[in-house]
Design a protein around this nucleic acid. Structure first.
Lengths: 237, 237
DNA sequence: ATAATAGTGTCTTTCAGACATTATCTA
DNA sequence: TAGATAATGTCTGAAAGACACTATTAT
């Protein structure tokens, strides 16, 4: 039998395979707090519990698992987050009462302002402070996934400016530093923070200014390449 | 309908789900070269091509996807690698001719000595120098996966001593440095390399010595915790 | 003018890079 | 004892930590 004959007679459902889903941890920064987007489950299992936005691959519509993640996030927030990255996959016999189940998880960041309208209009989607979320009884193993997403973001705050994606397109350096500090749960030396960003040339000064406090701060946008940039030296963990 | 009623009537095959598999990139260092374990495919699709060791979850035997990865590696090498870590997942409509397919990939390291016997005894499993493997026409998107595994290991060589897991349990510092250099494709300053390992207290001196060259080098084993340790400062990329 | 926030100057500290030097082993 | 490899000493340099200082703006 050659390959094309094989493919004609191949029947996928011959082998029992796990339930497969895609979930996302969408994080943002709002009111000086890290928040995570949760969705109230309207169906079994874990009906009534809050959990991560996600679901099954649509074999017709989705071309990749990342598209599945993005599609589900867009359904809930109205927009595609500017930062989305694979976090981890979990698969086990026990994590879902329906049977052997696998989830590929993504971690995404977004500015709160950019999707608050859509979210405010529905009752089954909401931002929760990370701390609150972690104390709730969440669906499946979603608590673990959120913890892992937080830890990974913490690491990134030490060697990149990825946290910038929790801010609007234009932001000030004090705002950016504040987000890093919130993620780290720890203050950072202002000089160190600014020096390394300046040296690595990661931002574009827009020329505009923002009056958040007394003196106005310069507004910046992040360079496209800066998403990939990592500093050779971490800030103090 | 409550949850237990729902679970009774739940039928997994109602929703069409992707083909799901688990694959591993097992790397080792041998003859001053990084090598990857490949398996010749005895069945369609890509029959006759070499590809990564892996396969489907055994819903009865495997409790987690990591167990699936380890089971498959053990079938091929005879042993469980001392280091195995999730690498990435790929899922798309196109990567497998049979249909929408997802693979969770693991990256693992092992000492060549610890599994050469088993591998030498069969013809469909073999170590290939990384360079050679990347020039071969491999099954599926396995070339990309191997490249990603290599890149991730390169990064780890800059901020950890994870490469130690390509060596036998007892190894010398010159051996460890050599492995790092092979992975990086670049020489490292001996003093810098040793200084940071000493300072971070990552190894245990066994007291034994090994005569590889002229002067005998001290033999070390890696501390269990060192698997998790990351230096705050990278070596030069 | 004052107070608050934005932004800079500069000294210290840490640790990697570079490379010379010493130590130990085999032949 | 010579030559090779292992291991250490030490100077330089780059970048983070600490913190004082100046600049700008709303009130």
């Amino acid at each position: 039998m050659n390959e094309s004959e094989y493919l004609k007679t191949y029947n996928k459902s011959e082998f029992e395979s796990p339930i497969f889903s895609v979930d996302s941890v969408l994080l943002t920064c709002h009111e000086d707090t890290l928040k995570v987007l949760l969705v109230e489950r309207l169906n079994h299992p874990h009906k009534g519990y809050w959990g991560l936005p996600g679901g099954f691959v649509d074999l017709k519509k989705d071309k990749t698992i990342e598209e599945t993640a993005i599609r589900k996030l867009k359904e809930k927030t109205g927009i595609t987050p500017p930062y989305i990255k694979q976090l981890m996959s979990i698969g086990s016999a026990k994590r879902d009462k329906r049977g052997w189940s696998v989830t590929v998880c993504y971690s995404a960041l977004i500015a709160h302002e950019n999707c608050s309208v859509q979210i405010d209009s529905v009752s089954d989607v909401n931002w929760f402070p990370l701390e609150t979320a972690l104390q709730m009884k969440l669906a499946f193993d979603h608590k673990n996934i959120i913890e892992e997403a937080h830890e990974r973001l913490r690491q990134k705050a030490l060697y990149s400016i990825i946290p910038a994606y929790t801010l609007p397109e234009k932001f000030t350096l004090p705002e950016l530093q504040k987000v890093h500090e919130i993620i780290l749960g720890k203050e950072i030396q202002k000089k160190s923070f600014r020096r390394r960003i300046e040296l690595a040339d990661l931002l574009i000064e827009t020329g505009e200014k923002q009056a958040s406090g007394k003196r106005q701060a310069a507004l910046y946008t992040i360079k496209e390449e800066s998403k990939e940039y990592t500093f050779l030296r971490n800030l103090e963990g």
